[in-house]
Simulated scan of single mutants.
Amino acid sequence: MQIVGSCYDWGVQMHLIALFLILLILPAATLACGGESRCEVRGGYYLAAAPAGWDGKTPLPLVVYFHGWNGSPEGTFRNRGMVRGVTDRGALFVAPYAQTGYWRQIGNDRAERGRDEAVYIRAVIEDVRHRWPIDQHQTLASGFSRGASMVWNVACYTGDLFRAYAPIAGGFWRSNPETCPTGPVNLRHIHGLSDRVVAFDKVGIYNSMPIPEGFDILARLNGVSGESHAVESGDQRLTCKRWDQSESGRVLELCLHERGHSIPAEWVGQGLDWLMNLPEGS
């Protein structure tokens, strides 16, 4: 009986060794979660989509998109134009999950009850980097409405996680922070002048703060030393101005349109274009 048991143990060990070797040679994309499969992390989950035809090895640019109020990663992925607008540009698209449908504020004296969003998003990014090779120089956080508010918060309090930020139709809520601990950032904001949900230049109906006040905070952090100048966006709906003369070398850009609270699917991909065209060293 002992001999049979020894042979059985040896067989199990060989099976495990063979399985381990198979896992080693499989491409990263085979092992990774993504698409309809949730990537579980502490505090929640996220969905992810890699570019079609990716070789499983080449480092990927990263776009993390924060959905709006009562949205979801699954709802985001149903917007195929938005997802493809990122993956067709050769980047990984990631959609995190907001508990009970909305993102909490971050920061001392500003944090809301519930999940610590700074801890959660760090867990997401750590997991993404574990599963996919990421080009650390090409990382972007984008989002819409309350998700854009999350982008502003992440830029302000966890600004080391991304190279650039592209919020759309949302800024700080309830109060502006006195300062942003993580320092200067690259940020491009899009907003509608007819937005009745998140007002552009006054306190909104849900206590959203005026977007120009947020820009004033970032301008001070960046050490802006010159006036803004008009720039072409490549999108006829947008009128954009840029502040690119600063002590930090970081770039701010504000793009306005005449419509209301909306986000055409292609604007997230255009945010990635903006990131990839930032000056070296910014």
Rank of each mutant, 00 (worst) to 15 (best):
I125K: 05
E117M: 10
A18T: 15
S149H: 00
M276S: 15
P167N: 05
G56L: 08
E117Q: 13
P184D: 01
E227W: 11
P133Q: 06
Y97S: 00
Q136N: 09
G75A: 01
R237M: 12
G114A: 08
I205G: 13
Q245I: 09
R78Q: 12
I3N: 11
M82N: 05
A123T: 13
T139A: 07
I22C: 14
D55S: 07
L218V: 14
C255S: 09
V86D: 07
E280M: 04
D127H: 01
V251D: 09
C156D: 10
W267L: 11
S228D: 15
D135E: 09
S248E: 00
N108H: 06
Q138L: 15
R220G: 13
V251G: 08
S208H: 09
Y157T: 02
A48K: 03
Y46M: 02
S262Q: 15
Q13Y: 09
E36N: 06
Q270I: 08
Y8S: 11
P184M: 02
G35W: 04
C240F: 00
K202N: 06
N186V: 02
A169G: 08
G147E: 01
V197T: 04
I168C: 10
G68P: 04
G68C: 11
A265N: 15
W69Y: 15
A32I: 12
L47V: 07
W152Y: 00
F172Y: 14
P184G: 05
R104E: 05
I168G: 07
W69V: 14
K241V: 12
I3D: 14
S194F: 11
E112Q: 02
N186S: 02
W10F: 08
P96I: 06
G35Q: 10
L47G: 08
W54M: 05
E232S: 15
H191I: 09
G81L: 10
Q99M: 10
G71D: 05
A50S: 14
F200Q: 03
L23M: 13
L238S: 13
L238N: 10
G90C: 07
R42G: 13
D244Q: 08
S208P: 12
C33K: 02
S228L: 12
V94D: 00
L62S: 03
S145N: 01
C180K: 00
T76I: 06
V251Y: 08
H229L: 15
R122C: 09
R80D: 03
Y45M: 03
S37D: 14
Y45F: 10
